[in-house]
Design a protein around this nucleic acid. Structure first.
Lengths: 216, 216
DNA sequence: ATGATGCGCTTGTGATCACAAATGAGCCAC
DNA sequence: GTGGCTCATTTGTGATCACAAGCGCATCAT
């Protein structure tokens, strides 16, 4: 048996580092729709060669976080209105189910953590910081969904978030919002009350409300 | 403007060929759970170098069609019962919605095509051919869902099929089935009648029935 | 017989390179 | 000025290579 003091920290793998950092930037709306990227540029930025950069890009393209033209040029996607509506419907479908599964497992500590995150969201809104707003908003949802104990379902929801990242940045950039998300309070209230139909409605409303106005 | 007689057939790209052929094999149950693969072996089989083979494998691993050990070894996944049940729930969630969206667009020609496919399924069952059974069964579902005009949703459903491919092979291999799928007839009947609740129930039953017995 | 040990070979990773295609800026003709 | 053409540059693709780590088998001691 191997009892040698093997280092615990796994994955110093180059392509995985690049993938994760790029993924976070895209999901959180750091890049606008249609933004162009190059393999050599990515490699230079993350101090790797083209090979791991290409693997990271390929994976993100497969997940819909990046698009590749017929000639292989890389850019963030510019979604059609039909695609946006479909992704919003997917969010509703998946996240309502995730919330419903998380409800029986949601104890008080979780609800309080969500409330804390909600104040951070309000802060991001006050500072007109689109990236912070998107990131904390997703953190609010993910905190709840982690309790659903449904990793494949959560992964699919995150893939949808990823595809919507650049588009959400474009939305929240031009949307002059002043109040923190209203439906988050309804979600928290439904969680406290153990009200499943109310929770499903609140999540569906929160998810579709913001995205309905994306259809410019 | 470019009026040169450019060849119409796009994508002679090596990594894409490898990806598609591997994906089809996995989705249709050509490989059992836990089957090991190597980059050099794949490259040799499809007459490419390691580079495109690795890109194809990475993409399939990202979609859950392959698993990579901490040391990078490649194999088809061996799913836990919890994961199987979660994927079955995802199938139900997504495919019920897809069927529901396809219903108003399903004209007679589509229903007749589905019926033809259904006879092919019966034939595969009669021949005890697991791969043919899985392939024609998925073709039956995809034919319906294509009418939903929801490409992102269909892509997610196919990702679930992909993850279940090897496991479904293992199931249908040991399951001695004699009759063609019963719920397919209910799906067709609901389509003819324009009965949406009946269609949703039939699809959900068909999807969960086969997978419920996967939990050995 | 059983378990540990050591080693050779297989395997994935990432860098580099040659190549072809496409892009875009500059130039020219009208 | 406007439109089309040309060419240098950028960019993605895929092959090859050096390297390190892991797996598995044979060997050996007990």
């Amino acid at each position: 048996m191997n009892l040698s003091p093997r280092p615990v920290e796994a994955t110093p793998l180059a392509h995985d580092r690049v993938y994760r950092r790029l993924r976070a930037r895209i999901m959180h709306g750091d890049l606008p729709p249609g933004h162009a990227l190059t393999l050599r540029g990515i490699g230079k930025e993350y101090e790797v060669s083209m090979t791991p950069a290409r693997e990271a890009v390929r994976r993100l393209a497969a997940e819909g976080a990046l698009t590749m033209s017929t000639s292989g040029r890389i850019s963030t996607p510019e979604l059609s209105n039909e695609r946006i509506e479909e992704l919003a419907a997917l969010r509703a479908l998946l996240e309502v189910e995730l919330a419903s599964r998380a409800l029986p497992r949601a104890h008080m500590a979780l609800i309080e953590r969500m409330q804390t995150i909600n104040t951070n969201i309000a802060e991001a809104v006050a500072h007109r910081d689109a990236v912070s707003y998107i990131r904390t908003n997703l953190e609010f949802h993910r905190t709840l969904y982690l309790r659903a104990q449904a990793p494949a379902m959560l992964a699919m929801a995150e893939t949808v978030w990823l595809q919507l990242g650049p588009t959400m940045r474009a939305l929240y950039g031009r949307l002059r919002r002043t109040e923190p998300p209203h439906f988050h309070r309804l979600i928290i209230a439904a969680l406290r009350a153990g009200d499943e139909p109310g929770l499903r409605l609140a999540v569906r409303s929160d998810v579709t409300q913001g995205l309905r106005m994306l259809a410019s």
